[in-house]
Amino acid sequence: MSVSSTSDCGRSGARSVAVWDPLVRLIHWGLALTIVLNGAVVDEESALHEWVGYVALGLIGVRLTWGLFGSRHARLSAFPPNPAAALRHLVALSRGDTTVHLSHNPLGALMVYNIWATVLFLGATGYMMGTMQFFGVDWVEEAHEIAFNWLLVSIVLHIGGVLFDSWWTGVPLVRSMIDGRKRVPRDRSVE
């Protein structure tokens, strides 16, 4: 028995790396909560719907600010939106590559920006609906509806992607968004 195998990787044979800082986690679950509230719980016509929407916008605003100068893995520069990289990631997956990305993988990064943009768009069209200028204007309401449907599709893809990646790389991703630590199996290379 080698000493190092027991002393620094624990029983599970994985090393844990602190990745998601508390602010990222709070904002992630806060945003999830606002989407659930506004999508399924709160009456759409109510003032509460508007306030929950503002909170969602605020959360993304804070996240983007934090993304400018925050902790290492939270910075936007750690996961730039890069469709070419996402495509390369897909090709690598099809070749059986199980490299672990400490921040988001390139495909996941695209989904992050997609969800933020969709929620911002929902907020903007939602706000417009409440203004005198656009009150009762059909295309605004339709845009809001379509954006919400797109958000639902995105969330299904997001959860599917998280489950797939957890299974593929062996890193329990949901847990990492709860306690902030990615447990990377020993035999995986890390990027």
Binding site: P22, R25, L26, I27, G30, V55, L57, G58, V62
Partner: peptide, 16 residues
């Protein structure tokens, strides 16, 4: 860190 993050978030929402 968690407490600090929670305060930042609340204060940011108040600021907004």
């Amino acid at each position: 860190a968690i407490t600090l993050a929670a305060i930042i978030l609340l204060q940011a929402l108040c600021a907004i």
